[in-house]
Simulated assay, not measured.
Amino acid sequence: MDLMVHLDGSAEDEVRLAHARTVIASLGAPSVTRLIGLFTNALPEFATVMPIEAGAAAVSVVADIEDQVRREGDNIEKALNERLASYGVPYEVRRLEARPAGLARLAARQARWADLFIATCPYRGDAEQDWGDLVEAVLTESGRGVLLAPPGAHAPEKFDRILIGWRDCRQATRAVAEAMPLIANARQTDIVYAFTREDEATDRSAEDLAAHLRRQTAQGPGQVAIHPVKLDAGVATEALLDESERLGSNLMVMGGYGQSRWLEWFMGGTTRDVITQTDRALLLAH
């Protein structure tokens, strides 16, 4: 597995790298063929540094600021190389340098050749930089799974109790596929199936998923359990978070953005709500 971790020189780097170490411990170091630190060094936007009407005089000022950002980036990159060298697996640091708007697209392209991308839960306002555009771009454009760590979260020793937030849809299926290496090494996999009255009589997909996981892993019937949750009010977020707490899960797996992420932004949705509220790691796929 090639494991890619988003790094930006902030305190959250330690949280992301700790979760990368948990993935390595969960799979076994020989299973991780390469650890890639994707260092995004954001250059300042011209308009935020100098007003447009400043004219040619501003060009020199902006150039000086960019040179300073690049020099600081050199120091951060050196420290990151030293940090990754201690992980005991082959590694590299890749540096992206662009305006913030361009970094999201570049990161999505880089993530396409990794097996899993680790970042910080965005939209919370409690991190030094949110990186919401970058996370969305990687999730929806790279074709890869994204493991999100809550800001400042403690990483477990292993991801050995996994909760799957299941819906009978493409995104949830993709998330399970992306998480299979971790599921195969887990002690317990709990499938939380939130259903409505209309689903109750016809949907047996959770049972089919459980049978599939038992065939694909060494887990027995008791290690792959189904937990149906009836949604009288139609809100899945609270049910998923409550079940993850009750079951002691240390990794949640679910599909990301089953509807347009713009609709989720304006109208609300399970993906965004779980990202902003979870206190444990979350693996998403689109």
Rank of each mutant, 00 (worst) to 15 (best):
A127W: 07
E77K: 11
I118V: 11
E97V: 15
N81F: 02
T120P: 14
L106V: 04
A108P: 05
G88R: 13
V135D: 11
R94E: 13
D115G: 15
P151A: 06
R71F: 11
P150V: 00
L106G: 04
G102S: 09
A101K: 08
D130V: 03
A119H: 10
A98P: 00
K78P: 00
T120D: 10
A114N: 09
R95Q: 12
E141Q: 15
A137M: 07
W113V: 09
A107E: 04
H154R: 10
G88M: 08
L96V: 00
Q68P: 00
R109E: 13
A108Q: 12
R112G: 08
A137Q: 07
D133Q: 15
L96D: 12
A149D: 07
L139E: 02
D74G: 04
D74C: 07
A85N: 01
L80H: 08
H154C: 07
V135N: 08
D133S: 14
Y91I: 02
L103F: 10
R124S: 12
V69Y: 09
A79H: 03
N81C: 09
G143H: 04
V138C: 07
A111I: 07
A85I: 05
P100W: 13
T120R: 08
L106C: 02
A111N: 04
R105F: 10
G88P: 03
G73F: 04
E66Y: 02
D133Y: 14
E157Y: 02
E66P: 00
E157W: 03
A114D: 09
R94D: 09
L106K: 08
S86D: 13
V89S: 15
A111C: 06
W131Q: 04
V146H: 09
V69R: 03
V89F: 01
